[in-house]
């Protein structure tokens, strides 16, 4: 894992906790654990909130169910999803 991915994962963990008002702290979120349906108690409304936050803050869309499954597999997966789309040439 590069320095850059680490910082993005950490940044996302902070935004996750802050945006959703989770009853935990960013350092306690397991970067490899599934975001949905696991211990964080994140549901479909939370994922929509995250979809908007990611598009607003990173300019990256998650607009299909398949994309959601890929992006929300874990914080690491989400960081990878964002980096991949951000580095793609803009349309």
């Amino acid at each position: 894992m590069t320095e850059q991915t680490d910082s993005l994962v950490v940044e996302l963990a902070h935004k996750l906790v802050e945006t959703l008002g989770l009853d935990t702290t960013a350092d306690l979120v397991d970067p490899a654990a599934p975001l949905i349906g696991a211990g964080l108690g994140i549901d479909s409304i939370d994922t929509l909130e995250l979809v908007v936050m990611i598009e607003k803050d990173y300019g990256v869309k998650i607009d299909t169910r398949a994309a959601g499954v890929e992006a929300f597999a874990s914080l690491i997966a989400l960081a990878a999803y964002i980096r991949q789309r951000r580095s793609a040439p803009s349309p």
Binding site: I45, D46, L48, E49, V52, E55, K56
Partner: peptide, 13 residues
């Protein structure tokens, strides 16, 4: 704040 682009689904609900 986002020029009529983004807001919170949670706040809407």
């Amino acid at each position: 704040e986002t020029g009529d682009q983004f807001s919170s689904p949670m706040d809407f609900i």
